[in-house]
Design a binder for these strands. Sequence first.
DNA 1: TTCAAGGTAGACCGGTCATCATATTTTGTC
DNA 2: GACAAAATATGATGACCGGTCTACCTTGAA
Lengths: 192, 192
Amino acid sequence: MSKGAETRARMIETASRLFQAQGYAATGLNQILTESGTPRGSMYFHFPQGKAGLAAAVVEAHAAEFAAALEAVVAATPTTADAVEAAIGWLAGQIETTACRAGCPVTVVALEVANDDPDLRAATRRAYERWAAPLAERLRADGHPAPAAASLARGAVAALEGALVMCRAFGDAGPLRDVAATLRPLLTPPDR
Amino acid sequence: MSKGAETRARMIETASRLFQAQGYAATGLNQILTESGTPRGSMYFHFPQGKAGLAAAVVEAHAAEFAAALEAVVAATPTTADAVEAAIGWLAGQIETTACRAGCPVTVVALEVANDDPDLRAATRRAYERWAAPLAERLRADGHPAPAAASLARGAVAALEGALVMCRAFGDAGPLRDVAATLRPLLTPPDR
DNA sequence: TTCAAGGTAGACCGGTCATCATATTTTGTC
DNA sequence: GACAAAATATGATGACCGGTCTACCTTGAA
């Protein structure tokens, strides 16, 4: 990785963390620069679209990272229910070790910016679709017909995202565990 | 209603609408005052805690309104599944008539402010609990044991909230319908 | 080593932000 | 009508905002 690419990655990582903890509009570029130890001049070099461009990169990075994690647990567990539960276990760990400051930057950007930035709306949509895809595929392999599998996968992603928000309100990972219990009977194939 | 109380109510209603559409930090007090046609001096009179106090009033008002709506549909429908579906139908209508600018101000405040304001965190928690309560009660009446009913009710609320965020990203009410389909088998009593 | 491209440093800009303070007006009760 | 409480009007404050600009430095390939 070149020095510039490292600078860029640090900006994205710090922005993601701050967006998760406190939202998009409340996170100023000065804070991102200070906490990442990166220079202002580089911000506009790497992200010519400015703050929105940075947000797009954050959404894309998080989408890829979480999609990879879901694909990995789907490949490593016998049922969709087990995969989702593994993902939830990981998310719960994040919530607990960060005192609820960890969440989902895609949800932050969708809520705060999507109405006024069609590109960011599309980016957040792609992120959610990307997360539903491995679950839907697995559900089809479990015997669900394709439309129902896709719908159930999206429902599961919605439940996860809602649970993350509620963990913020409750101050603990309880809601994620509620969602794990809620989804289990739906994601377990009938032969189990 | 006195003139002052009307001013206060207009502030809360406008703030709620703007928080839903664009988030908390991106909504400045000037915009709230301009769009509600209310005076700046009155803001600090009615809300001595300032913007946070206004947010607390928004959360409280929305919690009460949606709890009342849930209680009404629970009382008017034969099963929990029907009640949740009626609520989802209403929410979908809001999403569609506002081009996705309607959402949930409690989720906005939880995401953006709860980490730095313990009072607002507690207020958002109470709101979610208030929404889960009528569902849990109904699920108990359907035969679910109390701990499972409470957990499933919270899971359902999480799914609803996540669906609202995803509607923002998708630009339509599709995710709410996915969640309705996802929850139906879980909320339908075994004798149906 | 050279040099072009990539990347950085840092000052500056006009604008917005939430809050505060105090004088004034309005409201509501007796 | 009197009067106290409620509500409003309005200007001011210091902090912060994202973006721009230009000179300069660093990197990486030939």
